[in-house]
Amino acid sequence: MLRDLLCLLGAAALAWVYYVYARVLPTPALLLAWGVFTALIATALFHRARIRRRAFLAVYVAEASPLQRWLRGGVVLALRPVLLGALLALLLMVALARIAEPRTWLALIAAGPVLVLLRAWWFRRLAGHAGPLYLPILSWRAAALPVGAALTVLLVWLAFHQAYPDFAGVSLERAVWHLVDQEQARSDPAQVLLQAAAAKDGLRLWLAQQLMPAPAASLLQLLGWLLVLAEEVLFVWSYLLLSHGLLIGIGSIDRAGR
């Protein structure tokens, strides 16, 4: 368990170190970081895909069939997790670099031990019910779901209480520019991504503030907050996948179950 605790602390530390230097790193270093993040997330996704494939083979393909070897999962099976992992890693990196609230980091660091403890508890509880191959995944999901939900609620709550610029009476162009102009990074591609994210925030905030007096305000505001919720869910999901990828690589339970 200590290994897992240290593992998730390492995941938080990795994310935090990236956050601290994200805006001053040159493009090659950021590409390297993207590669590491992608590898970790893709590892988690690939691990699940392989378990699903094993279950499929166990049920549908005879044990002696050569299909067992051909279908056990290789480059083709890894392609989807890698592509999805690359995309999620990019989103995670942009979101991490734009964290403005220090309490987010406290929540992410604190989520590590909670996850490990909860997973260990679920692991013991489910050990008599789940198959040995699926047990590590199931216990992780059972722990990650409530922790992820709590993290999402906390992040939405922090976003709700964050101070936003007043865009009342301001054109969309100026509103978007106001936020885009604040995003600076040494790496040009990183700056483009950060500014695109800021433009998205500017559009969302402007729409929310301009349309507030309209009769449909509540619906539009709800949609705006749903968008924030979706962003936070994506962020938390990516972060948990990254953590899980690290656990699969060097953690105690997942490493044993590979």
């Binding site: 602390l9 938080a12 530390a13 935090w16 956050y19 601290v20 230097y21 994200a22 805006r23 001053v24 670099a97 964290i99 220090p102 980091w105 406290l106 660091i109 600076q184 990074a185 040494r186």
Partner: peptide, 15 residues
């Protein structure tokens, strides 16, 4: 890590 995350600000890039 808690202490660092609470006190260490992000390095800003000055264009």
């Amino acid at each position: 890590l808690f202490a660092l995350a609470a006190n260490q600000p992000q390095r800003a890039w000055s264009p």
